[in-house]
Design a protein around this nucleic acid. Structure first.
Lengths: 146, 146
DNA sequence: TTCCTTGCAAACGATTTGCATTGGA
DNA sequence: TCCAATGCAAATCGTTTGCAAGGAA
């Protein structure tokens, strides 16, 4: 089993949370790392192959989320989709297809990103609310459904 | 029962979809109209009082969504929150509290809104994706949880 | 009368949990 | 050895649906 720099970072992070970087958790991470957008437990289960029962998969997702390795997104009813946290994957946004529901990652050029950040800060300063993250999602029709 | 201009618009819209603007549906709409952010079926059920069984409430939400009166949002696992569509309530964004999960509406000043729109258009033109909506959510800590 | 709507209860699907077993440091 | 991690089955929870009764045009 190859240990990438990603694996090393995650291993360290999990140890800080008294958790182990086990086979099941690695499978989840590597599948997500090779993915072009957030994936649900069901999708991961299908991608990984049924080597791992769903209940264990859910537990892996919970541990990885608590340790800050994964972040959940809720774009569809009753389904959580996970992706690697920003410190592992970099900051980005999402394109959500209104037709097929697929979610695609979208990395903005530096200049755009700065404009989004500015906007969030300015807005935050005008309301009694302390911004932590921003989610800038563009909903529309993806190329496949066009 | 007072019939507002909102009610009239909705009544018309529902008729176009061969649906009636019934007591239960009115209750949902007026509750949402008096709300400061999207509400889930459970929250609506609590707010309205248990005059209406949950199953009927869900059916009302489904009809109102299909007719374009309500729009669902999915910010939390397993829970859909609804609000009046933009043509009834106006365009706005959301502040999502990471601590208590509450969602608050946020109307941006014209100048900000233009900047968001510009950004979406520019981004849309650089990817093979046709933007329809944009959801610009700011996640953070609300004043109550601060 | 004709259909849409409602209530109630049962069914569903995603996710969670109890418990006994396995496995790694 | 000790405690975290896993598998399986049963339980939860939000949401949906079948069916018979009620209501508006």
């Amino acid at each position: 089993m190859t240990t990438t720099s990603l694996d090393r970072k995650i291993d360290t992070r999990l140890k800080e949370h008294d958790a182990r970087y086990t086979r099941g958790r690695r499978l989840v991470v590597t599948t997500l790392a090779g993915s072009d957008g957030p994936k649900s437990a069901g999708e991961l289960h299908a991608d990984i192959g049924s080597t791992i029962p769903l209940s264990s998969l859910y537990r892996s997702l919970a541990v990885l989320e608590e340790s800050g390795v994964l972040v959940p997104h809720f774009t569809k009813l009753g389904v959580a989709r996970y992706e690697l946290a920003e410190w592992l994957q970099g900051h980005h946004h999402h394109l959500v297809c209104l037709h097929c529901g697929a979610v695609e990652d979208l990395a903005l050029p530096q200049s755009y990103e700065e404009r989004v950040r500015e906007l969030v800060e300015e807005i935050g300063s005008t309301v009694s609310f302390t911004p932590v993250n921003h989610a800038f999602e563009i909903e529309g029709i993806c190329s496949r459904c066009a």
